[in-house]
């Protein structure tokens, strides 16, 4: 089966610092890939290259076989690349529901023309979006927070809202940047369950995470990065068994 995402010889440098050095990566539909490595390894930069925040110096990116590396950030999101952020970047003056409603790929409220001449169609689309958003919040047990401001929620729930907003984009690829950092208890369980459900529904998921047990519970495959290079690509068991991880986390 063709991978959902494939990168070929991806390279990006800032001056002398190479954050992405000949990265060849592929993720299949339904797969949850763990991306691990020390701070500064280039994990988030790789997400930025794939989602279009950064332009690569060399190499190419394919989404479902289509080359996308010249498309700007917003177009790649419309093509179906959905991502979360390490520091969430929630819309802090807005309610939980409004945060989610901005997320669909084909958000109908962006055109002034439609605002002026297509109000009927706009209302129908809004109602459908609202149902979809409440459905996602329901899966996380957060329906009752819909009309609260996001900043009033506890941290773990804010993390979940970051994921929920991203899930409004129903595209084939989901990139999660440290979804578990600072998350404990019920939110942890929910995060794990929802990510698994998304993969089961056929999305390709890539998770950057320092929490090794989260990776072990969720991922079949893991990639280890350091200094912009992929050093190992295999099963999670192989990675845990190898010296690389021990060295990273225990300094042995």
């Amino acid at each position: 089966m063709n991978p959902v995402l494939r990168t070929e010889g991806l390279r990006k440098a800032f001056g002398g610092i190479v954050v992405s050095d000949n990265v060849n990566l592929s993720i299949a539909a339904g797969e949850i890939l763990g991306l691990i490595g020390p701070n500064g390894a280039g994990k988030t930069s790789l997400f930025n290259l794939i989602s279009g925040v950064l332009r690569p110096d060399a190499g190419s990116i394919f989404l479902n076989g289509e080359r996308i590396d010249s498309a700007p950030l917003y177009k790649r999101a419309r093509m179906g690349i959905a991502r979360t952020w390490q520091n969430m970047l929630l819309f802090r003056t807005m309610t939980v529901l409004d945060n989610l409603l901005v997320g669909p790929r084909d958000y109908p409220g962006e055109s002034v023309m439609r605002l002026a001449f297509g109000r009927g169609a706009l209302r129908v689309a809004e109602a459908a979006m609202r149902d979809r958003a409440m459905g996602i919040l329901g899966r996380m047990g957060l329906e009752q927070t819909a009309s609260s401001l996001v900043v009033d929620l506890p941290f773990g729930q804010q993390k979940l809202i970051g994921l929920a907003r991203t899930l409004m984009n129903d595209g084939p690829l989901l990139l999660l940047d440290e979804p578990m950092a600072g998350v404990e208890g019920a939110a942890y369980e929910t995060m794990q369950r929802v990510v698994r459900q998304e993969a089961e529904a056929g999305r390709a998921v890539c998770v950057v995470e320092h929490n090794v047990s989260f990776i072990r519970d969720l991922c079949s495959r893991a990639v280890f990065m350091a200094n912009g290079k992929i050093l190992q690509d295999g099963t999670v068991e192989e990675l845990i068994a190898s010296d690389i991880l021990t060295e990273l986390y225990f300094g042995v």
Partner: peptide
Amino acid sequence: IVNGPYGRAISAMRDEELAFTALGRN
């Protein structure tokens, strides 16, 4: 303009432009 879906997009853009763009908004 500032109420409803267009206004929601405007506030989101003002709050976090990067996240807004990464959701597919121009």
